[in-house]
Amino acid sequence: MRGVLLLLRRLIRAYGQGFYQPWQLALRHRHLLRQLLGRDAIIQTAGTHLGRLWLLLGPGLQILAWWFVFDAVLRVRPMARFSFLDYFLPSVLPWLLVQETLSRCLSLLREVRSLYERSIFPLAILPLLPLLLVWMIYTPLEAAVVAILHGPQAALAATGFMVVLAWLLLPWCYIFSLLGIFFPDGAYGMRFLLTLLFYFTPILYAPQMLPENLQDILAWNPMATLLQQLHGLIGLAALDLHHAWYPLACSLLVTGPAWVLFRRMSIQIREAL
């Protein structure tokens, strides 16, 4: 009984730390984070004529390709009341936040090894780096797109949604970063799963367009449930908060373990490379 209580206490402490310590660390090292974000943006677009504009143009062209295929060619109409772009654009930007952040986390610790391998470095701020960089690109974009398509009130709701999404994504950033270092084969598998998850998330289509038996699969996809909430917030569909617990639980359950695991593995991360 005493052992169980001890375990419970440690778990509660771990979850408590997982909630606030990454952000506390980010605040303490805000100047370093700012430098790292600038460094990252420059490196990603180094050698190009348009420079940091590519951070926007890259996903912009991807979105253009999807629009062309699904709207201009296939004439997909997810919702009768709204155009393809009304539905697609507010949905795809949060997805890109998730996909780009997690994909980058898989390779992050290897990419920036020169930063921490032989110098004193607060390793635990690194998984925040792709999350913040991508969030800073897509959140204003999402707000602007929703403001144009659905009005300023919806834009405010969409911004709040992006904040919550980043918070929910953080523990997964730590887990994906560790995966990339200690289980690189698994990292490739995760990239495949992310692609699969994209097609099983109602971004290019509405849930009701799927056959009924396949619609049940969407219930297991936390991103699908999250987008359902977003659609409710910006007026694309009726707001249904009954299923909001599921994505929250998916993230909150791993918050404590992810943070504690990453902190404990910090030494092994340096040595693994």
Binding site: H29, Q35, L36, G38, R39, I42, I43, S119, I120
Partner: peptide, 18 residues
Amino acid sequence: GFHPELTGWDNALLGLAL
């Protein structure tokens, strides 16, 4: 920790932040 794409100033700033 230096990156070849960054200028001397940028690398120095990052080094100081570290």
